[in-house]
């Protein structure tokens, strides 16, 4: 087949193949090019020796460096964990109310808290921490059990209404309707009264009757002004935030069948540093209260409502 001939202008032999009139000169390769080819072959042999390369019956050759993608992932994960260790130790060693003063540490703690929140808290509080009916919105400045960093930390560590946890946040609102303490008419009056406090129900005889019933039954926890009491986690009934809904039937429902929301005591489930970071994250969402300004006293309950 090969039809070698000498190309006249260059005086070089052709390789003897022709493609639609195009022929190729049989010029010798430059020697450096050939050397480079041999070097790549040597490299490939070395590569096959040190890295996994040849498939065998069950697995493959391991290579003398024992490299594997799983091993690399483990090394990377370990490196990432080691890189965090120092920061986590610093967070653990710093009292929680002082972390905010260290801006860099605070940023890292909030980021860590955000990650932990995504794993542990979003199921109830939502991925944006905005909560829903029955699950508090953590972004607002309305706090049931207190909104300064220590109070949030306390709530997170010991949970709410956790049996067997001595320091858990606990209180019990009677089911006024179900237990027959108030009859349905009275429940309706109280509902009208508390809604009227934030302008959600017009003044009426029912509201006036409700005020009297409220004074007799509710002030122990919700306070005479109905602004709540954090000691019992009793919500402020005069503001715009309604954990169980602000519709008339929702309020009637709450009085008839009292709610007793629960939250796990994270102290037994997460390590102390993670809980600290979670508390800092929740505190940083825009509604956190200043630790110095809001000492842990029930009287401070309505200070939290100070408007900007």
């Amino acid at each position: 087949m090969a039809n070698k001939r000498i190309d006249e202008p260059t005086g070089v032999e052709t390789v003897g193949h022709e493609w639609d009139g195009i022929e190729e000169l049989n010029n010798p390769l430059p020697r450096w090019w050939v050397i480079t080819t041999y070097l790549t072959i040597i490299f490939a042999i070395g590569y096959m020796v040190v890295y996994p390369a040849i498939p065998m019956l069950h697995s493959g050759t391991q290579g003398v460096w024992k490299w594997s993608s799983r091993g690399q992932l483990e090394a990377e994960l370990k490196a990432a964990k080691d890189a965090k260790a120092e920061t986590l130790a610093a967070i653990g060693a710093t009292p929680i109310e002082q972390i905010a003063a260290n801006k860099d540490l605070m940023e890292k703690a909030v980021a860590g808290g955000k990650a932990a929140f995504r794993q542990n808290c979003v199921q109830c509080h939502g991925s944006g921490a905005a909560g829903s009916i029955g699950y508090p919105n953590l972004k607002d400045e309305d706090w049931l059990w207190g909104g300064n960093i220590k109070e949030i930390h306390q709530t997170l560590t010991y949970g709410i209404r956790q049996p067997g946890v001595a320091e858990t946040r606990t209180s019990l609102m009677p089911s006024f309707g179900k237990d027959g303490i108030l009859n349905p008419g009275q429940v309706n009056d109280v509902a009208n009264y508390v809604l009227s406090l934030s302008g959600k129900a017009p003044a009426s005889a029912s509201v006036q009757a409700g005020a009297a019933i409220f004074a007799a039954n509710c002030v122990a926890c919700h306070g005479p002004d109905a602004k709540g009491l954090r000691q019992f986690g009793a919500p402020n009934l005069t503001d715009a935030v309604w954990l169980y809904g602000d519709k008339k039937e929702q309020v009637v429902g709450s009085i008839t069948n009292a709610h007793a929301g629960v939250m796990p005591a994270w102290g037994g489930r997460l390590d102390p540093v993670t809980i600290k970071m979670l508390a800092l994250y929740v505190h940083s969402l825009g509604g956190g209260e200043d630790f110095a300004e809001a000492p842990n006293t029930p009287a401070a309950a309505d200070n939290g409502n100070a408007k900007p």
Partner: peptide
């Protein structure tokens, strides 16, 4: 803008966006 949640209701009834 923070879009989750789109807004937060403050206890005063004011609307907050972050």
């Amino acid at each position: 803008k923070d879009r989750n949640p789109p807004y937060t209701l403050q206890s005063s009834g004011e609307v907050r966006n972050d």
